[in-house]
Write a protein that binds this DNA or RNA. Structure first.
Lengths: 136, 136
DNA sequence: CGTATTGCGTTTTCTTAGATAGCATGATTT
DNA sequence: AAATCATGCTATCTAAGAAAACGCAATACG
């Protein structure tokens, strides 16, 4: 299951993608509309900004807005950033690989199955983008 | 990612499936061979027994052994028992469904994508069984 | 300047994973 | 029946991580 944090990230990005381009939106507005705890959301948006997906503007008329085109942000990117690995096992992760202690991967049935699962998940998550989440 | 507990469950089941049928195996042996903390493994095996996958025998010559044929134990069943939901969101889970507070599922893009992901995962996890994990 | 807004480190709270301990219970052997 | 082997069960501990809240600094704008 995805953590609440990741779920919030998706909701916030969706909301921003539905707004007018380059129009700063208050954290408080997103928080209210999407029922996300304000301070928690603050951290999430900051992470997304640091990763280059969002831009922010301080002061009056400030807020957050998308830096990248929503069609250019695959869901897998958001997941890896906020959630971590997409794969179900470390020994099967492309971006967060960690070797299995006690199994020879070539001969590990579990490894093979989980690679298959991973590939199936990625095939969707790499191709669907934030733009696909909006009601537009 | 799967919890250690679920990973251990898979390893233990795999080990048992590789043994001679109906031959009790000591918890200690599984623990040693698969490098699983003994007492933790005890709990896991107990859960699997209660779920009807394993049988146990006390006393000398006792131990655990498979009750069901490994080809009859889909990986999804183990995951749901030990890990919980397979789906990435509660509002998309078949066995652990929980309604989303603030979204109308019919019009929620995230919901739709995650249903697709779930179905792709299940297509594999429902069809692969413990027997597919063994080196046999 | 003054106000609005994000930036960000810190702290708190809560939950869960993971691991530990100990005694009860049942089966087998002698 | 006694000794021994092995699981059954429950209670508890610790650490880590998720979720959320706090307070103030920094910045931008008018």
């Amino acid at each position: 299951m995805l953590s609440k944090k990741t779920q919030y990230a998706f909701k916030a990005l969706t909301y921003l993608a539905e707004q007018e381009k380059d129009l700063p939106v208050l954290i408080a507005e997103i928080s209210k509309k999407k029922k996300i705890p304000l301070k928690f959301l603050e951290n999430i948006l900051l992470e997304l900004r640091k990763a280059g997906m969002l831009e922010s503007k301080k002061g009056k008329g400030g807020g957050y807005f998308l830096k990248q085109d929503p069609t250019k942000i695959p869901l897998s990117k958001v997941m890896r950033l906020i959630e971590g690995p997409i794969a179900l096992l470390p020994c099967v992760s492309l971006n967060f690989y960690k070797k299995c202690k006690d199994c020879d991967e070539k001969n590990c049935g579990l490894n093979h199955v989980m690679i298959e699962v991973r590939d199936n998940m990625l095939q969707i998550l790499e191709n669907k983008t934030v733009a696909d989440l909006t009601g537009k």
